[in-house]
Design a protein around this nucleic acid. Structure first.
Lengths: 204, 204
DNA sequence: AGACTTATCTACCACTCGATACAAAAGTTG
DNA sequence: CAACTTTTGTATCGAGTGGTAGATAAGTCT
């Protein structure tokens, strides 16, 4: 048989460009014209490679998750629950204000609300956000087993709290807040976290 | 002179319906077809009354702010900074899961990202969110003058923290979290707030 | 080389978008 | 009633939407 004409663009590079467009404009706000221009390809190539606009988003989300997985590995490798929380919010403050990316978080920015034909996109994004919360919760359950978290600590509540603060930081960053502002929020948030009660009130 | 034909619909009622559509679908996701159907009027009436889709959003935001102003008056009337924070996050947990409204917060849900011709909508929403943060900050400055907040407390940081958590709760609620989940987040968040250190770790 | 398979390009589809022109309708004022 | 002013409904505007048909180009296989 024959292999056919090879693809003339780099799928991952194109996905990175698409990711940025979705990140900056949201799912509904990202038009095919924007996407194809940024990706440097024409609509038929896009549809041949990703099936649909929604398929393209999912592929971009997969790539986003892949990118952040090493970050999360570092976060979860923290020695204590407290250190995990510090690393988590700290890395969020950095990544959400990284000038190499649009501000904020793709999973928040991509679309909390959508138009008529895209009602399932918000669910898709929410389920991806939930994955990180689950990782944190399981890490805190482990910490509790290790005696690193007190018996009265609630891993699910702590994970949900951190995840919620992270979403809030995404909203904050998307409206132009700078890195120091996010670090400040992270710092105050950590006061709610068990361990190292000493530096509760003072701020940097 | 002559007075002209009177308007056949109630402007405020129509605004309430428009608000709900923007709330549920965001600015870009809310089409004129949805809006006019929900408002029970035809496009020319909408444009005569509000000028443009963006004008309609601003009018709806004004009405939203008006609605919440009594809430904020109650919140800011808390006896201590701590009580203000409790009232603030508590009322957010309630209002963001009020079945009478779409879940979450219009100012978050309405649009963090927008398409080509609507780049200023996110700014508009962000500036409205900032108003609440300012109210909180000024209340905390007052609390500090009153000696109700310690000298080492940072009113701006605390207000920003609360505002960020509130945005995060909006994201959480919009993805289907129930009222108890938001209350839990509020409870944990308050552990980061000065005063009443006793109940830091235990959760309901 | 020639058959075969797949990607790419041009052009276009039906549809929806936000916004309006126009004329009929509904009221107030003289 | 008649003159005037404003709103309302119908019908539609041009632009842009996501998505595709069909022909051509670019490779690999025998």
């Amino acid at each position: 048989m024959a292999m056919g004409r090879p693809r003339s663009f780099d799928t991952d590079k194109a996905l990175d460009e698409a990711m940025e467009v979705f990140w900056r404009h949201g799912y509904d706000g990202a038009s095919l014209a924007m996407l194809t221009k940024a990706m440097g390809i024409k609509p038929p190539s896009l549809y041949a490679a990703f099936g649909s606009k929604e398929g393209l988003l999912k592929a971009a989300l997969d790539r986003y998750a892949e990118r952040r997985s090493e970050h999360m590995r570092y976060v979860l490798a923290g020695a204590s629950a407290r250190e995990v929380a510090e690393r988590y919010l700290g890395s969020i403050a950095e990544s959400h204000t990284d000038p190499a990316n649009p501000p904020g978080c793709l999973l928040v920015q991509g679309g909390l609300a959508c138009g008529a034909g895209s009602e399932n996109i918000p669910f898709e994004l929410a389920s991806r956000r939930a994955l990180t919360e689950t990782e944190l919760r399981e890490r805190f359950v482990q910490a509790k087993r290790d005696g690193d978290l007190g018996d009265d600590a609630d891993p699910a509540a702590l994970a949900r709290f951190l995840s919620t603060v992270a979403s809030g930081m995404g909203v904050l960053a998307s409206s132009g807040a700078d890195r120091d502002a996010l670090r400040e929020v992270a710092h105050v948030s950590l006061s709610a976290f068990p361990g190292q009660e000493a530096n509760r009130i003072p701020l940097p």
